[in-house]
Simulated scan of single mutants.
Amino acid sequence: MSRIGKKPVAIPGGVTAEINNGALSVKGPKGTLTMGLSDLVTYSIEDGTISVKPANDGKAARSHWGMQRTLVSNLVEGVTQGFTKTLDITGVGYRAAAQGKSIKLQLGFSHDVDLPVPEGLEVKTPDQTTIEISGIDKQKVGQFAAEIREWRKPEPYKGKGVRYRGEFIFRKEGKKK
């Protein structure tokens, strides 16, 4: 039994959810999100909650149960509050600047890295060493943050690079004389 899957997802006030044509659509104050439904799980909307149950007693259905409930929960949370990832840049001369629908990164390469911001995301740079990515789709926010981090991962000796806020980087001691 999935402990996560058993809990119904509450639909807050101002949010509407409907199931039609094999898709769950959730509309809220921040926008609308749609998710395709799995055949291994049954979904029902009743009494202001969305319930997720396995379609049968098979192992595949039970393994999809908790994940599908979490995806439904992310839809509801995304249209009400949204999601934010914060990246910190460490290193001499490393900086970032949001310019309209793109972000310009200077990460120690011989050239600047210009990345287009995906549709539905908002990127802010409160200062030169901080990047805030926000949007209603948790997957898009996390994917774009990972793409930025991929350009210069934090290295273990000096800690230079792009890291998530609050991420711990295991530091190594350098060569000894």
Rank of each mutant, 00 (worst) to 15 (best):
S2K: 06
R3M: 11
R3S: 14
I4S: 03
G5M: 11
G5V: 10
K6S: 12
K7M: 14
K7R: 12
P8I: 13
A10G: 13
I11V: 12
I11L: 07
P12D: 15
P12N: 09
G13V: 08
G14C: 09
G14E: 09
T16H: 09
T16N: 12
T16V: 14
T16S: 15
A23V: 05
L24Q: 06
K27Y: 06
K27H: 08
G28P: 05
G28F: 10
P29R: 14
K30V: 10
K30H: 04
K30G: 09
T32F: 02
G36C: 01
S38W: 07
D39T: 04
D39F: 07
D39Q: 08
L40Y: 00
Y43M: 03
S44D: 11
I45D: 04
E46N: 13
E46H: 05
T49K: 15
T49G: 08
I50T: 11
I50H: 12
K53S: 11
A55R: 08
N56K: 10
D57L: 04
G58T: 14
K59G: 03
K59M: 07
A61F: 00
R62C: 06
R62H: 13
S63Y: 03
H64T: 08
W65T: 07
W65H: 10
G66C: 07
T70M: 15
S73V: 05
N74Q: 04
V76F: 05
E77K: 13
G78T: 12
V79D: 14
F83N: 07
K85V: 14
T86G: 01
L87Q: 06
L87I: 07
L87P: 07
I89N: 09
T90K: 02
T90D: 07
V92W: 08
G93K: 09
Y94A: 01
A96L: 03
A96R: 09
A97Y: 06
A97N: 05
A97L: 12
A97G: 13
Q99D: 15
G100I: 00
G100R: 00
S102W: 00
K104I: 15
K104W: 09
K104R: 15
L105M: 01
L105N: 00
L105W: 02
Q106H: 00
L107M: 00
G108N: 00
G108C: 00
F109E: 14
F109Y: 10
H111N: 09
H111R: 02
V113L: 06
V113S: 04
D114G: 03
D114W: 05
L115T: 11
P118Y: 03
P118V: 13
E119R: 04
E119Y: 00
E119N: 03
L121W: 08
E122R: 09
E122W: 03
T125I: 06
Q128S: 13
T129R: 14
T130D: 02
I133M: 05
I133N: 05
S134Q: 03
I136L: 04
I136Y: 10
D137F: 05
Q139T: 08
Q139P: 01
K140L: 09
G142A: 08
G142T: 08
Q143E: 13
F144L: 05
A145Q: 01
E147P: 00
I148H: 01
I148W: 00
R149C: 06
W151D: 02
P154S: 03
E155K: 03
E155S: 02
E155D: 03
Y157R: 08
Y157V: 11
G159F: 04
K160M: 07
G161E: 02
G161N: 11
G166D: 03
F168N: 14
I169K: 04
R171N: 14
R171F: 11
R171V: 12
E173I: 04
E173R: 15
